[in-house]
Design a protein around this nucleic acid. Structure first.
Lengths: 199, 199
DNA sequence: CCTACCGATCGGTAGG
DNA sequence: CCTACCGATCGGTAGG
């Protein structure tokens, strides 16, 4: 059945899983070792420190979302098309990388000042991309003229919360989830929907 | 300047603050003691265990939201009126009890099975109240006919995320935040808004 | 609420 | 990756 030795990537992946489930401070190096079939001290053959593992997982999360933002901005068409790409990309990242995303969103506060500051900057850039898309859409008529910063926060609230309730074994798949988020963001739940979208 | 002794309520409040800021596992009893001007061991004159403190803070959160749900259900008028009461009540609880809410939403997973199960049930009841309001609104014409479970999740996603970005010192107050959330939920950001709400 | 302490567990290391 | 270990810190307690 192949070798029993773990690669560094295996260790980082298992760390992401445990950090997501129990939190950074709720995970000991001995817990992580057990998960991989080795002793706590043996992990230091693969990694320099526990913090280092968190840095690596969080970095993966940051890169995944950065790629989403780039692809959304590069999408041709209207602002509504770019918004769809943004939402679909974000949903895809969450659904396909639940552990990394949960660690990125919930455990970054534990990082030292320098790394935490970098994460906050990455999140700011990400949010700024969404704000840009919304502002463009206010101009080209994709969205209402009043869209602003708070709408971006609400949209990200919905997207980031997917990590908290999404069940990969459940009936909702990525495509459907994207469609539902987009529909909610564009039209809400108001009765206006009926008059506006006949048929 | 009065007595220096802390009451049990002081201890619980400080625990909520630290659990919210650093997480349950990131807070030691000695940290908590320092916050109150006493030694870690002295806390056991006020409380039976560290877990007990978490149970108490989380319980406070559950009760606050339960009261919101009750008030919303008891609100006269249309389903839209009850939705407004639900949103306003939720925003009020978050804004006025940031530490308790953050602990309730983020640290409940650390609880023992029994208490955690109780929290999950409380959250289920809360979500069910919102679903009921939405279903009523689909019938009485307050909302579109297609509203369902996922819309409730999206609304709660926006409301619960307020804890993550709201700044009590910032320019947005409770009334404005309620209005913005309600507007977003009812109409989204779509350009349909323009045609639908002239003037 | 302090003094003085307990056993357990933590992140991490030397040497193989 | 294991053996064997380190100092530090943890939640908690007895006795005052």
């Amino acid at each position: 059945m192949g070798q029993a030795r773990n690669s560094r990537a295996d260790v980082v992946k298992a760390a992401g899983r445990l950090f997501a489930e129990r939190g950074y401070h709720g995970t000991s190096m001995r817990d992580l070792g057990r998960e991989l079939g080795l002793l706590g001290g043996s992990l230091y053959a693969h990694v320099e420190s526990k913090q280092d593992l968190l840095v690596e997982v969080v970095q993966q999360g940051a890169e995944l979302f950065e790629a989403v933002a780039s692809r959304a901005l590069a999408t041709e068409g209207t602002a509504a098309d770019r918004l769809r790409a943004f939402i679909d990309g974000h949903v895809g990242v969450v659904v396909d990388n639940l552990d990394v995303v949960r660690t990125y969103l919930n455990e970054a506060r534990v990082l030292d000042d320098e790394h935490r500051a970098r994460v906050l900057e990455a999140r700011d850039r990400y949010e700024a991309v969404l704000r840009k898309i919304l502002a463009d859409g206010a101009t080209d008529g994709s969205f209402g003229p009043g869209v602003d910063k708070i709408d971006a926060i609400f949209i990200l609230s919905i997207l980031n919360a997917v990590e908290r309730w999404y069940d990969p074994e459940g009936p909702v798949d990525r495509a459907e989830l994207t469609a539902r988020v987009l529909g909610f963001v564009l039209d809400g739940i108001g009765a206006g929907l009926v008059a506006r979208r006949p048929g």
